[in-house]
């Protein structure tokens, strides 16, 4: 703090702005800002204001309508019941596979490709496959029946399980890729150091790798959860859209395009966003309890 004595002139205004991170490179942000404003902020605030302008009643009456109707209200629980376990399973299944695959080995690219291919399938193709494979006359049930393991086909489609499987298939590649990149961001020397200090692989994992990976797992969980929570096509195609898989996005869709009640649909969308935010806030709060600094690797 010695540089700026009373008699000394201040640095040029450009230096002072640069000190605060304001320089010409900021222009690089313009395209992103245009996108965010045009494609996210404007529609969001449009929907938000629309949700307070119901066709009849006070500004909050559409929200009240949603929560007073148990059939509508229940969609929150139905969606959470599908999305939370699916996101959790995706993350948990990705960890051991990514852990095994973090190093270099022959055929790594092939295995990674195989694991990531479901991303390219799209929901409809996945649903088609699920119906063929797990449906009442699909291979899975035919094998079970032929082996006399069951007396009648197990119902795995057009109900909760169909949607669940579909979410796992489409969500897993995301979770896997994210976990893999978080894992390769952890310096492998740390585990080697732990080994020379006497830790077997189990303790290397639980005491070194897992604690360092937890923030990444939390982020991965949030992303796969958001993907799963807005599930729509598979809820219709392989679920039971009138009953146990009437997810919240379906309720919004019906309000908007079957009843043409846009304010009500907007209100449902806002509620949907709020529920997501609550879950993400909880997960991120838990995440902040872990070490989130540099983990030494290149990632």
């Amino acid at each position: 703090m010695s540089g700026s004595g009373p008699g000394r002139p201040l640095a040029h205004w450009q230096h002072r702005l640069a000190e605060r991170g304001i320089d010409r490179q900021l222009w690089l942000l313009v395209p992103a800002l245009v996108f965010v404003i045009a494609l996210f902020l404007y529609p969001f605030f449009y929907g938000l204001t629309l949700s307070f302008q119901p066709t009849d009643g006070g500004p909050l009456s559409d929200y009240a309508r949603f929560f007073s109707d148990s059939y509508e209200r229940g969609t929150i629980w139905i969606t959470l019941r599908i999305a939370l376990p699916a996101a959790l399973l995706n993350v948990l299944a990705a960890v051991p596979i990514a852990y095994r695959m973090r190093g270099r080995f022959r055929g790594k690219r092939l295995v990674t490709t195989l694991l990531v291919v479901p991303i390219t399938l799209g929901t409809v193709l996945t649903a088609q496959g699920l119906l063929n494979f797990l449906g009442p006359t699909g291979w899975f049930n035919r094998i079970l029946l032929a082996g006399n393991l069951v007396d009648e086909p197990v119902r795995l489609t057009h109900n909760y399980w169909g949607v669940f499987f579909s979410l796992v298939i489409t969500g897993f590649p995301f979770a896997f890729l994210l976990v893999l990149s978080y894992l390769s961001g952890i310096d492998p020397t740390l585990e080697r150091a732990a080994a020379t200090l006497g830790a077997d692989w189990r303790r290397r994992f639980t005491m070194i790798t897992l604690p360092l990976l937890m923030p990444g797992l939390a982020t991965t969980f949030c992303l796969t959860f958001v993907l799963a929570f807005s599930v729509f096509p598979s809820a219709v195609l392989v679920g039971n859209p009138a009953g146990e898989t009437r997810v919240i996005s379906l309720a919004a869709y019906q309000a908007a395009y079957e009843q043409y009640d846009y304010p009500y649909a907007s209100a449902i969308a806002m509620i949907m966003g709020f529920v997501e935010l609550v879950i993400i806030a909880l997960v991120l709060a838990a995440r902040s309890r872990f070490y989130t600094g540099s983990t030494g690797g290149k990632g």
């Binding site: 080697r192 150091a193 070194i208």
Partner: peptide
């Protein structure tokens, strides 16, 4: 023997301190 059963201490070039 695996490293954890040799009981040798090692100092790494990057130090490899556990950051957490």
């Amino acid at each position: 023997l695996p490293p954890e059963r040799r009981g040798f201490g090692m100092v790494f070039q990057s130090y490899a301190l556990f950051p957490h």
